[in-house]
Design a binder for these strands. Structure first.
Length: 424
RNA sequence: GUGGGCGUAGCUCAGUAGGUAGAGCACCAGGUUGUGGCCCUGGUGGUCGCGGGUUCAAGUCCCGUCGCUCACCCCA
């Protein structure tokens, strides 16, 4: 048992996995670029009040999941539990809205939530996300949804479900909430205990409860979709029709509610059956009121966030993550002191030419060095002893074909580059 | 915060009726005086999560504790 171990809910990403992360992050960046989203990087921590204000004091995230601490100046700081509030804070702080009306921003970042870990749920986890800031048009909603979908498509993912809903806005949500509460009030005692708690805090979420009894009780409950104001209704219809035009399959789920308070109108989630209990790959929606809430000018916006760990779990399950092993171009195996010194020098020379080169650091036998070369996945081995040095030649062995030949040291670089297909 | 499962070599695990630990893989060395992948031989490696108790004797029984994991809740 090691003396120190990683703290609960965190993961070390070891080299073999790091390759998979780099691949996924690369695809994310590439698709983001196609949609002309630009990267933004915000700090790992923020003033606590930013999240309390932005996400909502009553949400689970803020009320019980944040990593909050005091700095030496007794200021309350919080490790970011989500990405949208920080991005909007930066947007306001740097007056980006004054420079041009619409900003398309994306991020890839760790997030922190102090929950009990389980499959697909960590305390430090990673999200990529995008925010389209400054447009109220339904095209903007569709832009972010299509972007999310295309990232999954680009990764080869087939089995996922897109669910969408509208949660209304300032004019229609409050009245609907009251109607819903009126409906639920007489049935309150038949609901599960957590739903009874939700009644005051977040009644909309009761519709999303998985309890058999609650589902039955709410089967006939009024749905927000039937109580949207005219503008919200038109917006939702436009979003749906644009999605259809793009051939993006979706399910309307009138019970879909998101856990962060800032959402208005469009809300969506992307689910995967391959995940277990935590089945949301990503989610997002429109948040037209957030910028004002954070002290900025009214700035209608949409965005989404998606979990990288969950995505990797699914890709792994679907067998979409293979062939990431690769070894050096050349492994130098030596015999004798003089040859070892030559290897140090030659390795650097080759590396400066752009080749990936490695050699032995343990002073082992030639046989052990060859074994190491094989294990490393190297394409070529360079075998060098006193004989070769005297003759100014080296043995160049192709490790997959087992063919080898003697090459003059002076023409080594050219010979290697020719065989590796690299530009000389 | 609550509940279930699990904690034996680097990894995956076995361990019978309690008698102070094994396999496969990996690793190292040799079989080839200067050459890998297969094969053969040998070797390194374990306070059996930790603490306490029962017992002549505990990985094996009892209690506690910590950790991991899955689930509830919530969400990525």
């Amino acid at each position: 048992m090691p003396k120190f171990q990683r703290i609960k809910g965190t993961h070390d990403i070891l080299p073999q996995d790091a390759r998979k992360w780099r691949y996924v992050e690369g695809v994310v960046q590439e698709v983001m670029q196609r949609y002309n989203f630009d990267e933004i990087r915000t700090p790992i921590f923020e003033e606590t009040a930013l999240f309390a204000r932005g996400i909502g004091q009553l949400t689970d995230i803020v009320s019980k999941e944040m990593y909050t601490f005091l700095d030496r100046g007794k200021k309350s700081l919080t490790l970011k539990p989500e990405g949208t509030a920080p991005v909007i804070r930066a947007f306001i702080e740097h007056s980006l809205g004054e420079k041009k009306p619409v900003h398309k921003l994306y991020y890839i970042s760790p997030m922190f939530r102090q929950e009990n870990p389980q499959a697909g749920r960590l305390r430090q986890f990673h999200q990529f996300g995008a925010e389209l800031v400054g447009s109220a048009a339904p095209e903007a909603d569709v832009e972010t949804i299509a972007l999310a979908v295309d990232i999954y498509e680009q990764l080869g993912l087939k089995k996922y479900t897109l669910k969408i809903n509208s949660v209304g806005d300032a004019t229609c949500r409050a009245p609907y909430k009251e109607r819903l509460k009126d409906y639920l009030r007489p049935r309150l005692d038949k609901l599960c205990r957590s739903c009874q708690e939700r009644f005051d805090k977040n009644p909309l979420r009761i519709l999303d409860c998985k309890e058999e009894g609650c589902r039955a009780e709410t089967a006939e409950a009024p749905l927000i979709i039937d109580h949207l104001c005219e503008d919200c209704h038109a917006h939702f219809e436009a979003v749906k029709s644009l999605l259809s035009r793009l051939g993006i399959a979706f399910e309307v789920d009138h019970r879909l509610v998101r856990g962060l308070d800032y959402y208005t109108r469009t809300a969506f989630e992307i689910l995967s059956g391959a995940l277990g209990a935590q089945n949301a790959l990503g989610g997002g929606g429109r948040y037209d009121l957030l910028a004002e809430e954070l002290g900025g000018k009214p700035t209608p916006s949409v965005g989404f966030a998606a979990g990288i760990e969950r995505l990797l779990m699914v890709l792994e399950k679907e067998n979409l993550l293979s062939d990431f092993d690769s070894g050096p171009d050349v492994f130098i195996a030596t015999l004798g002191e003089e040859a070892r010194r030559w290897a140090v020098q030659t390795a650097r020379q080759l590396r400066q030419r752009g080749l990936r080169v490695d050699y032995d650091f343990l002073g082992r036998s030639l046989k052990a060095q060859m074994k190491e070369a094989n294990r490393s996945g190297a394409r070529f081995a360079l075998i060098v002893g006193e004989n070769e040095l005297q003759a100014r030649k080296v043995v160049l062995r192709n490790l997959s074909s087992s063919e080898q030949e003697t090459v003059a040291i002076d023409s080594l670089v050219g010979e290697l580059e020719a065989r590796l297909g690299k530009p000389g």
